[in-house]
Design a protein around this nucleic acid. Sequence first.
DNA 1: TATACTAATGACCAGCCAGTCATTTGTCAA
DNA 2: TTGACAAATGACTGGCTGGTCATTAGTATA
Lengths: 274, 274
Amino acid sequence: MLKKQLIMEKALELFAKQGFEATSVQQITDYCGISKGAFYLSFKSKDELILALIDYFLSEFISNTDYSVRNTDDDEVLYQFYYNTFDSFQKHSNFAKVLMKEQSHSLNKELFLKMRYYDSLLENIILSMIDRLYGCEIEDTRYDLMFCIKGFMNTFSQFFLFSHLPYDLTRLSQSLVEKTNLLAKQTTIPFISKDMITIVKQSVDETTKENVMELLEQKVEELDNALVKESLILLKQQLNEPVFPQAIVAGLLKNIQEHPHCKWVAYLLRQRLG
Amino acid sequence: MLKKQLIMEKALELFAKQGFEATSVQQITDYCGISKGAFYLSFKSKDELILALIDYFLSEFISNTDYSVRNTDDDEVLYQFYYNTFDSFQKHSNFAKVLMKEQSHSLNKELFLKMRYYDSLLENIILSMIDRLYGCEIEDTRYDLMFCIKGFMNTFSQFFLFSHLPYDLTRLSQSLVEKTNLLAKQTTIPFISKDMITIVKQSVDETTKENVMELLEQKVEELDNALVKESLILLKQQLNEPVFPQAIVAGLLKNIQEHPHCKWVAYLLRQRLG
DNA sequence: TATACTAATGACCAGCCAGTCATTTGTCAA
DNA sequence: TTGACAAATGACTGGCTGGTCATTAGTATA
């Protein structure tokens, strides 16, 4: 399992520098100081490697963002959202670069769907934040606002990732909060309609219940902590056949939430169990 | 020369679908119905092909945009800017896709520099528009605004290029004009400073006088129209050693401006001759 | 030490790549 | 019809690709 991590780290460096396609398995294994055969003991294919990287980073990013948005007061939530986003991008700048480079390369169908899937999760988080902050008064322009927020994230990340400048996260976030509030409160001409979003989204798979079950079983095997383990098993029962009241489910979710390896599964369960 | 155009058109289709790296020369020539050898009679290498594509489309886009911004009244210029941008992207959607896919793939140094070069020309056009519309009162936030405008262009183009939805150009442009005005007039927290821009820009080449001279000579050879030809020769003299008054230069530029194959060289000359 | 097992190796495979060049084809004028 | 020239061909080269697998190295138990 350590070998797997080594490969992921080193490969990420190379992908960030050269792009996924332009990096050969040989280069990766040379850079890791292992043989080519050893690579294929950890990953079935080169494609599986990049899918693993995407899952590893984006599942963490999405679950952290969701948690933060849920647990921050209205007057701080937008600032926190921007701050955390750029903070993550800065800390995992190699991954962010890979994400930028590969975002519209749809060669690999599975990769494309995965990206769209995470993107749609992010859109939902942003929309939930918009509704909380500005309510139904901006019903007409909420999708426009969502696009602007995504646009800000993209544009400013790109600038800093490829210019290698140091920058003041706090000020950037404050500046974007101001812009977002201006647009939210004063935009009168909507452009993106609900229908457009629906049409685009209908092509994106959702995680199935079976996917979540599988992940749950895997985590139960993997982890040692007794409290977390028992919570996982109970949540698995609940997913199969709902019997516990909301309060119990919420408590179980909090139990596993704290464990660093369970944030993603907690996020997925919250989507299904309330 | 016709062969060259055929290759460019067919290759663009394939690049838009599969990406540059993932498309082989063999595929391109098969798709054109020509032999592999014939490809290398038109282009020295596969790289030269994509560089030619970039130059072909971006020089047209930049010179058109610049012309439009210069010749539109203040109350319409922003709307026209957005409208023309999205109109071009829609008309040349294959090229737009290639641009998106390859924008951050810096494998080829020359390609990277070319992209940055055209990007910096676009930034200058946007900044000149900002200064004209909002004057020095937004001196502090003009770079922020420029980034937001670029962000709008990027985000909304991406959405429509990859969702394949039909959309109302007029409404989109109106909607973005409103957003831009809101941000321009009410933003108080600047983030992008002049220094940041300077640092990033210093690494981008400019076209040299020699480049322009070369292009001029090429156009003189290439074109038949007597008026345009004479204007080009006179402008060449002026570039070498300024003797004519502004009015004459302006007139000569207008002479060549109208010819469809001279828009780019006219743009470059205007940058140097006033 | 002997045995049984897994972890790791790297030579090897078939296939594709960009690019070349000896050869053929097409097109003129004489 | 001939000859001279340019346009076009596609088999070929050397090199790199993702992926395989018989072999070897390392390790733990008996």
